[in-house]
Design a protein around this nucleic acid. Sequence first.
DNA 1: CATATTTTTCAGTATTTACTGAAAACGGCT
DNA 2: AGCCGTTTTCAGTAAATACTGAAAAATATG
Lengths: 181, 181
Amino acid sequence: MNSGDSSAGGGGDEALKEAREAFINHWGAMGSAWGINRTMAQIHALLFTATEPMSTDGIMAELQISRGNANTNLRELASWGLIRSVMIRGERKEHFEAEKDVWKMFCLIARERKRREVSPTVEVLEECRQRTRGLRTAESRQFARQMKEIGDFLRLGETLLEKAVAMEESKAVALARKLFR
Amino acid sequence: MNSGDSSAGGGGDEALKEAREAFINHWGAMGSAWGINRTMAQIHALLFTATEPMSTDGIMAELQISRGNANTNLRELASWGLIRSVMIRGERKEHFEAEKDVWKMFCLIARERKRREVSPTVEVLEECRQRTRGLRTAESRQFARQMKEIGDFLRLGETLLEKAVAMEESKAVALARKLFR
DNA sequence: CATATTTTTCAGTATTTACTGAAAACGGCT
DNA sequence: AGCCGTTTTCAGTAAATACTGAAAAATATG
């Protein structure tokens, strides 16, 4: 009973450390694929799986990154509401902890992406539509219709998310399950 | 009645051209924000708003890009199913047209992102969970639980999308509207 | 208020990602 | 087979993005 067994002792800590590292790395890669800076996603994963709030220095050490990098991405994560700074008594350094509730996390991301990307897109589409609305060529009419169709789709999506995000997780999940039993 | 009026003639064509360009640019920027290469998104927008299928050369000229760049991104768009190549009689060059139905477009993107990103993530999470499952420390238990929670959330999302994507647009929209009247 | 500690900023640099263009490969045609 | 128009590939390069580290600014301490 030693290295193959994962139920106790140093081997267990090792397994946890490795699994956590795998998660942090994968979360970083996923961030990249979805237009989020890899480091920002890694810091998020690190804090999400941390049991205690961490200082900037702790994060720098863990992820082997510079102070500037850590600071920038911590501020960005805070601006999304995904982490918050907490003061630890007896410590002067700022410490950070992540929102641990997956549903709340999802709501924060949805809200922010809507605000930063979807809504501005809806505006551009509407503007494109208005600019070509009076035109009478077949091309213009088709274009204006397409702008309307994407706009309608995005607005419907926005509404759905708004409603979902306003719900308790349990309600939302129950609804989802009922819908597609 | 001249430049200010947008209802007919050359001014109208100009307005359409400008609006279309604005759409293409914005679509490209949105692509970037969501982890999709800007040029790929621009080609998509170009074909989406085109009335006729376009050749690689046409696309190169319109977006001022090289043949290699155009070719790569056209193949990538085709691999997502967002465009298809069509043969034009009398022409030897390959021509491309985009899926114009917004709901179908959404379904294609959802399916592809699920396949490429969400499902692999679910697998990693499951693996992380398994690797720490036997451990008995508080940290390990919390970590394993977190992996399960994200995994459950993503799987539920996958299921919902699968079902939605299997529906007709009209049904899906009707359902959405009913849900949140 | 002088000093120590922490945080922010940002010019310079490194890394990653995307693009070009020319050569090679392909595919039809005679 | 040999030619010709088309598409693909990919080494080299450009552009975009992310990161470092040290200096400046802010904040706390006695």
